Amino acid sequence: MTESRIALVTGGNRGIGRAIAEDLMAVGYRVAVTSRSGEGGPEGALTVAADVTDSASIDAAFSRVEEELGPITVVVANAGITQDTLLLRMSEDDFTSVIDTNLTGAFRVIKRATKGMLRAKFGRVVLISSVVGLYGSPGQINYAASKSGLVGIARSLTRELGGRGITANVVAPGFIETEMTAVLPEETQQQYLASIPAGRFGRVDEIAKTVRWLVSDDSGYISGAVIPVDGGLGMGH
C-alpha cells in the first residue's frame, strides 16, 4: 500500500527530516521534501521550495507535489528553528519568530494537507516535537512553548478528524546525533549524557523508524499520542 502513498516532509533537506524522508523512500513511499531554497533534498525525493511562515508558499509547494506525484496523505511537520537565550534577554521577536516557524508553521502545513486527506478518507500527520516541549529547558522558553503547542494541535486534530481515517501524533526526540549536537563542547555533551538513562545520544534513524511506524497501517488506532524517543530523559513529562 505504501507504494501508492505520497509523503511530504517539511525541512527534509538535513538532519532528522532528511533521515525520515530517506527511510520512507526505502520502504516504498513516494516522498517530497521542502527546504527554504528548494534544493538539498535526498536523492530520489522531489524537493520543493517552501517557507512555512508563508501560507502562499506552502500552498504552491503542495500544488507542485500534487501535480508531480499525486495527492499527499502523509505529512511530517519537521521544519523548525531555535533562537536560544535566557528569558530576561529574549526579545519579543526572538519569541514570535520561533513560534511562527515551529508552531504556526505546522498549523499552516496541516491545514493545507487535510483537504487531500479528507478526500482520500485517509491521512497520517506526524509532528516532530522535542523532549524540551514537556521537560523544559533554560534559555528555550520560545522553543519549548512551540514544541509543547504541537501536542495540543495533534490532540485537537484527532478529536476533529479522528473519525475520517486521519491520525495525528507527536514524536518527541531527545538529544539526537546531528550537526547541532556535534558542535557542542565536549564538557556540555558529557553533562547531557549524564542525564540520559540510556547513556548515549539517539540516532536519526531511530526517529525515522518511529515515524515510519506511525504513518503505517499498523498504527491506525493510535492518535493524539506523544511518542518519546529520548533514551528515557523525559520520563513522566
Rank of each mutant, 00 (worst) to 15 (best):
V226F: 09
V65D: 02
K209T: 15
T101N: 10
P173R: 06
E186L: 00
A50R: 03
T167Y: 08
S219I: 15
L193S: 02
E177M: 11
M117N: 06
M90H: 07
S223Q: 09
P173D: 07
I176P: 02
V151F: 03
D100L: 03
V183T: 12
S129Y: 07
G152D: 02
A7I: 02
A182S: 13
S216M: 10
K111M: 03
A172F: 04
K121N: 14
D84P: 01
E179D: 15
V52Y: 01
T2C: 14
E187M: 00
Q83A: 15
M117A: 06
G236S: 10
Y221K: 03
P185M: 00
T53Y: 04
N142H: 15
V226S: 07
D230N: 15
A50N: 11
G162K: 08
D94F: 03
V98E: 08
V226H: 09
S137C: 13
V171K: 01
A7M: 04
M1C: 10
T47C: 15
I176H: 02
P42L: 04
I20V: 15
G123I: 10
V170H: 02
S195R: 14
G41P: 03
D218F: 05
K111E: 13
G152E: 01
D59K: 13
D205W: 06
G236K: 14
E186Y: 00
L134V: 14
I6P: 06
M180K: 08
V31R: 01
G174C: 08
D217M: 09
E3Q: 13
G220R: 13
A120F: 05
T181V: 01
T101D: 06
P185A: 01
L193Q: 01
A21T: 10
A21R: 04
F95A: 04
E92M: 11
D218G: 12
G162D: 11
L157R: 02
